[in-house]
Design a binder for these strands. Structure first.
Length: 269
DNA sequence: CTCGGAGCCTGTCTGC
DNA sequence: TGCAGACAGGCTCCGA
């Protein structure tokens, strides 16, 4: 489910709601979630809310130093902010974090989502580079790609190189870059590398502007759907005409995952 | 080191 | 209508 634009949307919404609030109670409703929430956590204060790759991270100031409480939504997780004491939907509810002014509700149908607690930002951060950071340049992309024989689609999903891209944007980005998802990344020319770099940044930024993509389950922290699904150009559109040239969009499987592309705009080889 | 496949879960949808 | 099988936005682990 949530990739970088969706998680960024949630983080931007939660930041003003949670900043400065005291955590009063943590309730875990799923045996799969095991969180070493010690005494010092109760009464801790939210310092900042940040996106770390596809994770939502709360930095908490406790009596025993700062901690990072980190949510990963995986396929079907959502984090919903519920103000005051409104009644709460119970279906698929996996955890409740109660704050002074409301509750942070963690829902997760397929139960792949995780909550972890760490002692430092480094400890909980993914290894890959943030594609919307100033350090992400065409040159840097080139060095990340160097030596990899993986095909473009699979490479874009690697969180140890570049964080935040999931299966939807791993189809949309190659389309925008006019590159075949089957291209081995070490075969890209300098110009193609620039096109790819531009596509990664522009697709992610445009999606954030539209509060992310809701293909089926994704909801933002207010329970609303995203808006970018109206702007998807290839993902989920197999059998329909390419918005650029009219050729029928094709679906294939790369690395066990659905992949969509226009055979005319994104010619192989 | 790299890469591809199985597995983790629960639900919806399609075709027989 | 019933049922089996495919498929779903992510990631880890294992073996080649």
């Amino acid at each position: 489910m949530p990739e970088l634009p969706e998680v960024e949307t949630i983080v931007r919404q939660l930041r003003p709601k949670l900043a400065g609030q005291r955590l009063l109670l943590v309730e875990l409703l799923d045996d799969k979630l095991s969180l070493p929430v010690g005494e010092e956590m109760v009464g801790s204060t939210v310092v900042v809310v940040e996106r770390l790759g596809k994770q939502i991270a709360l930095n908490l100031r406790t009596t025993d130093g700062n901690r990072w409480l980190v949510f990963h939504l995986r396929m079907t997780g959502s984090l919903i902010w519920s103000a005051g004491n409104k009644p709460v939907e119970q279906k698929h509810l996996r955890a409740i974090l109660s704050f002074e002014k409301g509750k942070l509700l963690f829902y997760d149908l397929r139960r792949f989502g995780t909550i972890i607690l760490g002692n430092s930002r480094d400890e909980v951060s993914p290894k890959g580079l943030e594609p919307l950071s100033s350090g992400f340049t065409p040159e840097r992309l080139g060095s990340l790609i160097a030596n990899s024989r993986q095909v473009l689609k699979s490479w874009l999903l690697r969180q140890d190189r570049l964080v935040g891209i999931g299966n939807i944007y791993a189809s949309e980005i190659p389309f925008t870059a006019r590159l075949s998802p089957h291209r081995p990344v070490n075969s890209l020319s300098i110009n193609e590398l620039r096109q790819l770099h531009r596509a990664i940044v522009s697709v992610l930024e445009l999606s954030i502007e539209h509060r992310g993509t809701t293909f089926s389950d994704y909801r933002d922290s207010t329970g609303k759907k995203g808006g970018f699904q109206k702007l998807l150009r290839v993902y989920g559109r197999d059998g329909k005409p390419c918005p650029s040239c009219g050729t029928i969009i094709q679906r294939t499987v790369i690395g066990q995952r659905s992949t969509y592309f226009c055979p005319t705009c994104q010619p192989a080889g």
